[in-house]
Simulated assay, not measured.
Amino acid sequence: MHLGLIGYGTIAADLLRVLAAEGAAPAALDVLARAGRVDAARARLGGGQIHVDAADLIAARPDLVVEAATHEAVAGPVCACLRAGLPVLIVSIGALANPEVEASVREAAIAGGTQAFLCNGAVGGIDMLGAARLSGLARVTYTSRKPPGAWKGTRAEDMLDLAALTEPTTFYTGTARDAAAQYPKNANVAATVALAGAGFDATDVQMIADPGVTANIHEVSVRSGAVNFDLRLEGLPAPDNPKTSLSTIYSLARAVLNRAAPLAI
């Protein structure tokens, strides 16, 4: 596969590592980096063509573009790639909590005759949630429970003395839309659950800082006309970024492998 990457941080570097371990290293690699960060991108990724303009990435015509950057990238180069007919796998799903961004992504994909694929990331059961939605959803809730340190650099740090917590503390209760807007680096799972299920405004979210856990725990509860289920996943934090579940990287790798596999599941 000729792979395109938007972003070159922990997720992108680990994605390439997993693909190589599976014997599926890209035959060609084109990476979109910010101006002035070309050398850093090349050092971290160990090769590939590095571009600072989305037009150059598009001109390379990769088979698949993976966005592993920021919410801002979804409204910018992701839409440009889609409009040019390139399929894009989006990691920063929380960006779609902004209805204007979601509309732009849909319109760009239609204009380009292609698709934007949303990576499940750290959460599972999205296939069954999507099926349950067709039967009618009565209730969907998502709870994010992480060690206090994983919430550093977010609004939680302004509300709580994270280092001094001795018991689980809920610091956010609201909708998936507000969660994704207020905690953009932590709420991609909330956005994924919302898009697959009841929507951003009808999906209830709780965020908890819990000194008693060492993993990033994701809990999804669904009640519908066809199936009821409760799901709990304990994702180990990525060593280089505790805000990211390690499972996100493997989920992304699975999605990329499926795009090239003769038999995909």
Rank of each mutant, 00 (worst) to 15 (best):
T154H: 10
G121Y: 09
G136L: 00
R145V: 12
M159L: 04
D158Q: 03
L118R: 06
T141F: 12
R133D: 08
S144T: 02
G121A: 12
N120P: 15
R155Q: 12
P148K: 06
A122S: 11
P147S: 11
G136I: 05
A132N: 04
T141V: 14
A122P: 13
P148G: 02
V123A: 14
V123L: 13
G153Y: 03
K146Y: 05
M159I: 02
G130Q: 14
R155S: 04
E157Y: 01
A122C: 15
T143Y: 01
V123S: 09
G124Y: 15
G149T: 13
L137S: 02
G153R: 02
S144W: 09
S144P: 14
G125D: 05
G136W: 00
V140T: 05
G136E: 02
G153E: 06
Y142E: 03
T143E: 14
R133W: 06
L160H: 03
D127H: 12
G153Q: 06
A132W: 04
L137E: 04
I126N: 06
G121L: 06
G149D: 07
P147V: 10
M128F: 12
R139Q: 05
D127L: 13
A150T: 07
R145Q: 15
R139D: 08
G149N: 08
A131E: 12
G153D: 01
R133E: 00
K152W: 07
I126Y: 05
T154V: 00
S135N: 00
A138N: 11
A122H: 14
K146Q: 09
E157K: 04
Y142I: 08
L160R: 00
D127N: 11
L160N: 04
A150S: 08
S135F: 00
G153A: 03
G130P: 06
Y142A: 00
W151T: 05
T143M: 07
P148R: 12
M128P: 13
L137P: 06
G130V: 15
R145W: 08
A122K: 13
G136S: 10
A138H: 09
A132M: 09
W151S: 12
P147M: 09
Y142N: 06
S144G: 14
A150R: 13
L160P: 01
G149I: 02
L137F: 01
